[in-house]
Every structure is written in structure tokens, then in C-alpha cells.
């Protein structure tokens, strides 16, 4: 039994790693295509049919590029930083149920690596640790733009962890559990949480943008003012790891939002599983959509939004939820 469990877990880990690192690559393709269509362009078209093999071309380029470690950087930290981003993104995936359990060759498969009963806390904590990648990379780079990006990363991390935690506190109070599977079960009988907690949903969504560093809050690596931020000194696959971590994080946070607020995979039928994938696709698309439509905010505006708007609203939301539940 022990050995079977171990083998099953290892297989699950390998499958998740393969699927999501591939998806991270294809995510860049989708991003380029969607942005292009929204800006009346065509996007990548030349490599393969409709540019589909662009991902492979980019991968080959990143893998074969020279890996430069500039003089003056703190070499060990500089080398570790991208690994932290990519690794923590995939570590967070351990507690996410990607699909309802299904039977494969008479063997019941639960598509979740570790069903720990504090899933949400674990996922958010590990995703928070993921911001150590930009921070360390920025501080070790000996580059002023990278340092500015690292400072912004620290500020975003410290402030938006608060919003994330407070906003999902109200749904957690309603469900009474921290496991994503319990959330799913709760929503089968009681309807989607988004209808009971619309404020928490929107707050969590906004915080998800800050945590993944996507466009309205894209200030950690803001191309037009601080070059590439923490990624300025990186080249080749080390830079690629940052990108993989970012895109994998986008997918995982889309899963988390769908599971927490939008009913997850429902009763576990095939339709429910497809619905979950559809919701995840929508949230991923929304990340790209906002990048085409919205401007970036300044760091001080981001802090203002967090501490003066979102946090009070989150606290009021918790208080009201508590009163209603009593």
C-alpha cells in the first residue's frame, strides 16, 4: 500500500510538472496571439501553422543561449533566484485538485498530489514564497533597476498577502474548512460562493493580479520604466525559469479562484470537469485581456489601493459575514 501510494504520487508529480511547464510555454503563445488580435495584429505566424511552433523555437533559443553571470553579482543567490520562482509555483500546485477523481483501468485516481486539510493556506503561503525569486534576483543583480524591482516586489508581497488572506477569510468562515475539496463539496449543496461573497471574490481577484504581477499591477518587471526589473541581468534559461514560474502561477491561481468561488468541478461528472477547465481558461484569458486593455498603476497607487481601499473593505466584509453567520 505504502509503495503503491508512493509510486502514484511520483507519477502525479511528474504529470503535473510536464503538463504545466508545457502549458507555461503555450501560455506565452496564447498571450502573444490574444494581445495581437486585440491590437489588430496577427502575432507569431511564421513558425509552423499559425505560428504554433513558436513555443518550440523560443524554447530552443532559451536553452541554447549563453548563460551569463555578470561580474559583481552575488553569484550563488543570483543562480538560485529563478529556481525559487519556478519551484514554488509547482510546489503550490501540490494542494490543488485539478480534476474530480476518476477511474483509470479500474484504479481510482485523485488528481491532487497531497490532500492536506489546510490546502488554501498552503497554496497562498507557497505562492507568497515565490516572490522571493524576484526579490533575490533583483537584490543579487547589482543593478539599480533590478534593485528597484526587488524593493517593489517586497512591498507588493507584504501588502497584498494581507488582502489575499483577509478576503478569503469570509468564505473560509462560511465553509469552515481550509481544504479546497471541502470548498467544492460545500458549493455543491449551497450554491457558488461568489453569489454569497461577491466582495471577497473581487478582492481576491484583484490580489491575484498583484501576486502574479500581471498588468494593472505589473510594476515588479515593468518594461517601460525599469527595463525588465529583476530579469534585467538574466539570460537564457534562467530568465526562462522566471517566465515559466510566472505563467504556471497564472494557471494555478486561476484554478484556485475557480475552486474557491465558482463551484470548482461541481459534482465530479465529466461536465463538471469540463466546466472547471472552462472557468480556468476564462480566468487565464482575463489575465491576458486586462494586459491589452488596462494601464499600469504606479507603486504608490498600488499601496494606496491596498491599504486604504482593499484592506478596509476586506475587514468590513469579514465583520458583516460574522454578524450574518451569528
Amino acid at each position: 500500500m505504502e509503495t503503491a501510494y508512493l509510486i502514484e504520487t511520483v507519477i502525479k508529480i511528474v504529470v503535473i510538472l510536464l503538463i504545466f511547464s508545457a502549458l507555461a510555454g503555450i501560455g506565452t503563445y496564447f498571450e502573444r496571439k490574444v494581445l495581437a488580435f486585440m491590437q489588430r495584429r496577427l502575432g507569431p505566424m511564421n513558425v509552423g501553422p499559425f505560428g504554433l511552433l513558436q513555443v518550440a523555437a523560443d524554447g530552443i533559443k532559451l536553452f541554447t543561449k549563453e548563460d551569463i553571470v555578470p561580474s559583481g553579482v552575488v553569484a550563488r543567490i543570483f543562480k538560485i533566484a529563478p529556481v525559487i520562482t519556478a519551484a514554488t509555483a509547482f510546489m503550490a500546485a501540490a494542494a490543488i485538485p485539478f480534476l474530480p477523481s476518476f477511474t483509470l483501468f479500474g484504479y481510482e485516481v485523485h488528481p491532487i498530489v497531497a490532500d492536506i486539510n489546510i490546502g488554501i493556506l498552503y497554496i497562498l503561503g507557497i505562492m507568497g514564497v515565490g516572490l522571493y525569486g524576484p526579490l533575490l534576483g533583483g537584490m543579487a543583480s547589482a543593478n539599480k533597476f533590478a534593485l528597484i524591482s526587488a524593493a517593489r516586489g517586497a512591498a507588493v508581497f507584504i501588502s497584498y498577502e494581507v488582502v489575499t488572506g483577509l478576503s478569503i477569510l469570509a468564505p473560509i468562515m462560511m465553509v469552515g474548512s481550509l481544504s479546497l475539496i471541502d470548498f467544492n463539496e460545500y458549493q455543491i449543496s449551497n450554491g457558488w460562493i461568489v453569489f454569497a461573497q461577491p466582495v471577497a471574490f473581487i478582492l481576491f481577484w484583484i490580489a491575484a493580479f498583484a501576486e502574479t504581477g500581471r498588468t494593472p499591477f505589473h510594476l515588479i518587471a515593468n518594461d517601460h520604466e525599469i527595463i525588465d526589473g529583476f530579469g534585467t541581468e538574466y539570460s537564457g534559461m534562467r530568465w526562462g525559469l522566471f517566465a515559466i514560474g510566472e505563467y504556471a502561477n497564472m494557471f494555478f491561481i486561476s484554478f484556485v479562484i475557480s475552486l474557491l468561488f465558482l463551484g470548482g468541478y461541481g459534482d465530479g461528472s465529466l461536465l463538471g470537469a469540463l466546466a472547471l477547465l472552462g472557468k480556468v481558461a476564462f480566468f487565464f484569458f482575463f489575465f491576458l485581456w486586462t494586459r491589452a486593455a488596462w494601464p499600469d498603476v504606479r507603486p504608490d497607487q498600488l499601496m494606496w489601493l491596498c491599504w486604504k481601499v482593499l484592506m478596509p473593505i476586506a475587514v468590513i466584509n469579514i465583520v458583516i459575514t460574522g454578524i450574518v453567520m451569528m
Partner: peptide, 13 residues
């Protein structure tokens, strides 16, 4: 606005 442009698919490339 951006979604409308995407649906309309009026590519100028």
C-alpha cells in the same frame, strides 16, 4: 473595446 476588436478580427498586419 479590445474585445470588440478581437471579435471583429479586422487585422491590419
Amino acid at each position: 473595446v479590445v474585445l470588440r476588436e478581437m471579435i471583429r478580427f479586422d487585422i491590419h498586419t
